[in-house]
Amino acid sequence: MTDAPSPWTAGAAPASGARRHAPATVRNREAIVAVLRDALPPAGLVLEVASGSGEHGVYFAGAFPDLDWQPSDPDPAALESIAGWRSEAGLVNLRAPVALDAAAVDWPVAAADAILCINMVHISPWAATLGLMRGAGTIVPRGGLLYLYGPYLEADVETAPSNMAFDASLRARNAAWGLREVGDVVEAARAQGLLLERRVAMPANNLSLLFRRD
């Protein structure tokens, strides 16, 4: 494939061309892999919810060749981008993308050994996070991983000015979006039998939150 990927940010219409390019994926992927190396199972199926451009899925499938990777997204343009990156990569452990809305009651994936969800919680209505927890509590096994990455608010922790500005910009674009309180996310997870195992500070004022199904 010779066409250059189209620059893209969440919530924006893509330019012409199937593949999207989200610059943040290049900046954060190595730090995320470093956390995942000690958290993912040695084999099995990993479901990525809200895969976006699809670039993370290609990188992670390459980094963890013994795991099968299932990308997903509710946006048809994102699914097209994911398919484009998958076709170019040619990785045998990277599955074709499926349409999955985290807020939906019924998911197209019946079981997964782990779930990844990167930069969705703040760029979606709260119903999507509640649906994510419900789905994870249903399809991952006991001890299975739910991994979240992104910017959050924390009680008794000063929020970086850049994150405050980002939160304001998100809410200006969509009143249902915005940075979430870690405590609220933890409570939503606990209600579905998912317990916070670890919080990891990440570059650029982001967090990794690792949950395990009880």
Rank of each mutant, 00 (worst) to 15 (best):
L132D: 09
V186E: 12
V121D: 10
G44V: 01
L36E: 03
R180A: 09
G135L: 05
F166L: 10
P5R: 13
F166P: 12
L36F: 01
L146A: 08
L153H: 15
Y149I: 03
A191S: 15
N206C: 14
V105Q: 13
I139E: 00
I32D: 07
A103V: 09
P5D: 07
W177L: 05
T9N: 12
R212Q: 05
T138A: 10
L40K: 07
L79F: 03
L67R: 12
S169T: 14
L47H: 11
P5E: 09
D66Q: 12
W69F: 04
W107Y: 01
A63L: 02
P76I: 04
V35W: 13
S81V: 00
A31P: 03
L79Q: 06
P74I: 09
Y149C: 02
A168I: 08
I118F: 04
P23H: 14
A110F: 08
A102M: 01
A128W: 04
A96T: 14
D184Q: 00
L91E: 14
R86V: 01
G178S: 01
A204S: 15
A12E: 09
L210M: 04
A165K: 10
E48P: 12
A34I: 13
S51E: 02
R190N: 04
G183S: 06
S16M: 15
T129P: 04
F64L: 04
G52Y: 02
